[in-house]
Design a protein around this nucleic acid. Structure first.
Lengths: 228, 228
DNA sequence: GCAAATTAATGATTTATTCAAG
DNA sequence: CTTGAATAAATCATTAATTTGC
């Protein structure tokens, strides 16, 4: 469940010791035909690794072609998933509970627009009490909410007040269903703050393959399968 | 240097154990006036900690207002940084070495456009051999390079060939200074892949304040000061 | 009443712009 | 003026609502 590992293995990766990258963990890609050209399989991800060869040097080939590739190989039954996609029980995307949304809206009304990493962590921690949630969800929520409030407001101001003015100062009374009053504030577009950041998931399959002990895979977030 | 901690403290945060979150590390927000009523405590549970008072409830106030706000409090000397921003010696932003760029361009020419988290890690690790670098740099590089190659190409096609055609098939001979041939490929805008993710930096000031031991702050990336 | 078919919301990504360090 | 960094806008893709036919 929601957890992140980032221990051993992660350290190895991120700290990029000048050594050979210790790609110790194989990464066996189930599919990945040997031909490898065009390939479009979507997901696959990975690094590819032309399978076998150990890898110790940079080996550019293994990087290119993030995904995509001919789906041959799988032959008959195709990618009808089923015995595959089961890795994560719940669903693919975050489905906020009422409490979570309530809190988020409160924060938004309070003036929060682009929380920084630390704030996101805390919010995530708190919201986690009401249901599964990750930091990225919080980040995205604010991004989306901000954008949509903005466009909603624009629509309104254009919709029922013909004069091009009355843009900023007046708090549009054309409220929608929910009270979404406070929006003015000092939204200040472009403020050049620091931004939230982190690398996530990777790919379920791959990560799985690396699993040896039971807790040192690399995943900052509870990698949700979504092979999207 | 480039490393990420994410150990002790981080685990506590991200895993959001239903317990009290142990926000041992203060977090004192310099600003954030005391007003605050409206409260709406909702949740309860720790986190936050408006400065001194221990705090045990959600306390939204401490979240809002990522930054900005009346900078009173700090009183005289202000946030003139200086003795503060020193955490990272070098400069603020990544300054790629020739080798790093060479490799990145190779990858780009090889067809890589939007590497996923795992790829970014590996690339970062390798490029780290030639100089300080973080995953976000790699991420941004690809993003920027892709965008700029695109606009450059557009400029060219419009600039020196009037016929709206000759857009795709021909490899524009109007090369700029550097060889940037391969650009065609199947760039496929919008592919809905999985994306890289991670939370970063936070804020120098705040993070610093948390510092107690010497290595268990929360920062997935070597927080670069840039108080931007 | 229910379940497939549609539509409305909105979570998640990618692309376009903008800012600013060097 | 080049380009790393960050934000905003545009999109895609799911999921929940809502409607419709039985």
């Amino acid at each position: 469940m929601g957890s992140m590992k980032v221990h051993q293995l992660a350290r190895g990766f991120w700290e990029h010791e000048p050594t050979s990258l210790t790609l110790g963990c194989k990464r066996l890609r189930p599919l990945a035909p040997k031909l490898a050209n065009t390939d479009t399989t979507t997901t696959t991800t990975s690094t590819t690794t032309t399978t076998t060869t150990t890898v110790t040097s940079f080996d550019l080939k293994s990087f290119i072609r993030p995904d995509s590739g001919p789906r041959k190989l799988t032959s008959p039954d195709d990618k009808k998933h089923l015995p595959q996609v089961e890795t994560h029980p719940g669903g693919t995307r975050w489905n906020p509970t009422q409490e979570q949304i309530g809190i988020l809206e409160m924060l938004y009304r309070g003036g929060m627009r682009t929380p920084n990493a630390q704030q996101i962590e805390q919010i995530t921690a708190q919201l986690g009490r009401y249901g599964k949630i990750e930091g990225k969800n919080v980040f995205y929520w604010f991004q989306n909410h901000k954008a949509r409030e903005r466009q909603k407001q624009k629509r309104n101001s254009l919709g029922l007040s013909h004069s091009p003015r009355t843009q900023a100062p007046i708090n549009t009374l054309a409220v929608d269903t929910r009270g979404e009053a406070a929006e003015r504030e000092e939204d200040s577009p472009y403020k050049r703050k620091c931004r939230s950041w982190a690398f996530e998931s990777l790919d379920l399959e791959e990560t799985r393959s690396c699993r040896e002990e039971g807790d040192r895979t690399l995943e900052l977030f509870p990698l949700h399968p979504e092979g999207r």
